[in-house]
Design a protein around this nucleic acid. Structure first.
Length: 421
RNA sequence: GUGAGCGUAGCUCAAUUGGUUAGAGCACUGGACUGUGGCUCCAGGGGUUGAGGGUUCAAUUCCCUUCGCUCACCCCA
């Protein structure tokens, strides 16, 4: 025997025991998204490396060390997408979707790839639901997008186990000034910060704010808040978003220290948080990205969107989903009976009933045993004597009651039973 | 990339200070029971003990390397 090949590190098979949960989440997402006027788009899962470098930001961790980048045979540098927004917006620009009435509402579902050490709720290939609304600056759109997100989680029954964290991180008009103020503050209290925060204070000061080390907390608690430093436009935008959310009775928690990992975010940012997933507490995250479309070579269209981590959602969902098994096991005894039952099985399957067909080689006892373990409600027995008389036995498994039906009417009988289920 | 813990059958786990042929339950297949299931009993298939090397008369057990898993850091969905 040769050595078995195993799956690559950080990726995983989604087995039949789990796929019902995945399907439930996907179906709910499609229903909710479509109900709000969003349409599916399916971009490729790899792109020119430059798209992500430009879109996500050269200096982000994702671009610097987490991308699956390779050269194709033509010598071009390609990258498996680490996130979907850049691809969706690239397609938006490339195919002129911006000529449609704004906002343009899009969503996509699929795998993402990041080269990270796997951990609870974190994988190298993982799956996201992505929703994007492009071409509108009005804060009503921010509220709409967040409302769609919340409705999705109400739909899968997780809304009350999650909290919505909301923040505004300003825009190019006000963030630089805040950044200066923050750096100044962090320098002043550098002695009280951990080594890493001290280094980051120079490189990427905003990220210092979400350091989880207890030692840093007091310093960060007293740090100047971005919300006090917003320019008038950003402050008004944020106030409106909050008012709309309140009008829809959507609870949220203002979290001035919420910072996100992509450079492109401006103004509104948000995350859906859980305490049930260890260190991976974000189930979904998103924000506004005015300026990104232009950065990617398109028109100056603003936009906002979010990503939902499917693995994390599925982990929160109980595995109670009991899939419906087959309606019946058809048991032929001998090849002649199998020849007679094959077309019947195909006919009812074509009409949507799920039946399993034996091959006529096992004993009746074993087949009934199998029917029992398959948990089918009915078994259909056709042996030599039935075949001679043109009959079939329909056995009701829980009671053991059997009745005789003509073989010619078996298909109809099965469909009646299927309808009753 | 850093750190810690763990790798024995498809699954959950045993195996004495290092000691003979690595076991059990569940699951799977068959039989007891010529064509009537759930219970019971019996049997069978399935393991390079993650891989490679070392110490030893002898390694699942001790040591090294490596791979993988898990958790945390980091980062994020």
């Amino acid at each position: 025997m040769s050595v078995a090949i195993k799956a690559v590190r950080g990726v995983h098979d989604i087995l039949p025991a789990d796929t019902p949960r995945w399907q439930r989440v996907e179906a709910t997402a499609r229903r909710v998204f479509e109900a709000h006027g969003y349409h599916e788009i399916r971009p490729p899962i790899f792109e020119r490396t430059e798209l992500f470098a430009r879109g996500i930001g050269e200096l982000t961790d994702i671009v610097q060390k987490e991308m699956y980048t390779f050269e194709d045979k033509g010598g071009e540098s390609l990258t498996l997408r680490p996130e979907a927004t850049a691809s969706v917006l690239r397609a938006y620009v490339e195919h002129g979707l911006h000529v449609q009435p704004k906002p343009v509402r899009l969503y996509t579902i699929g795998p993402m790839f990041r080269y990270e050490r796997p951990q609870a709720g974190r994988y190298r290939q993982f799956h996201q639901l992505n929703l994007e609304a492009v071409g509108e600056v009005h804060p009503g759109l921010d509220a709409e997008v967040i409302a769609v997100l919340m409705e999705l989680f109400q739909g899968v029954g997780l809304a009350d186990r999650l909290t919505l964290a909301l923040n505004s991180i300003g825009d190019p008009a006000c963030r630089p000034a805040y950044r200066e103020k923050l750096v100044e503050y962090l320098r002043r209290r550098a002695a009280e910060l951990c080594q890493e925060c001290r280094e980051r204070a120079e490189r990427n000061p905003l990220r210092v704010l979400d350091c989880k080390k207890p030692g840093c907390q007091p310093v960060l608690d007293e740090a100047p808040s971005i919300l006090d430093a917003l320019c008038r436009e950003c402050a008004e935008h944020f106030a409106h978003v909050r008012r709309y959310l309140e009008a829809m009775a959507l609870p949220y928690r203002v979290t001035p220290r919420l910072v996100r990992g992509f450079d492109y975010y401006v103004r509104t940012t948000f995350e859906l948080l859980t305490g049930e997933l260890g260190a991976q507490n974000a189930v979904a995250g998103g924000g506004r990205y005015d300026g990104l479309v232009q950065l990617l070579g398109g028109p100056p269209d603003p936009g906002i969107g979010f990503a939902v981590g499917m693995e994390r959602v599925v982990l929160l969902l109980s595995s109670d989903s009991n899939k419906a098994g087959p309606l019946a096991l058809l048991i032929p005894l001998g090849d002649a009976a199998l020849l007679r039952l094959f077309p019947v099985a195909q006919a009812v399957r074509k009409q949507g009933a799920v039946v399993e067909l034996g091959y006529g080689v096992r004993r009746l006892r074993s087949e009934l045993d199998r029917a029992n373990r398959l948990k089918v409600p009915y078994a259909v027995i056709v042996g030599e004597s039935e075949l001679e008389k043109g009959e079939a036995l329909i056995r009701e498994m829980t009671s053991g009651a059997q009745r005789v039906v003509p073989l010619s009417r078996l298909e109809g009988e099965l469909m009646t039973l299927a309808g009753r289920r």
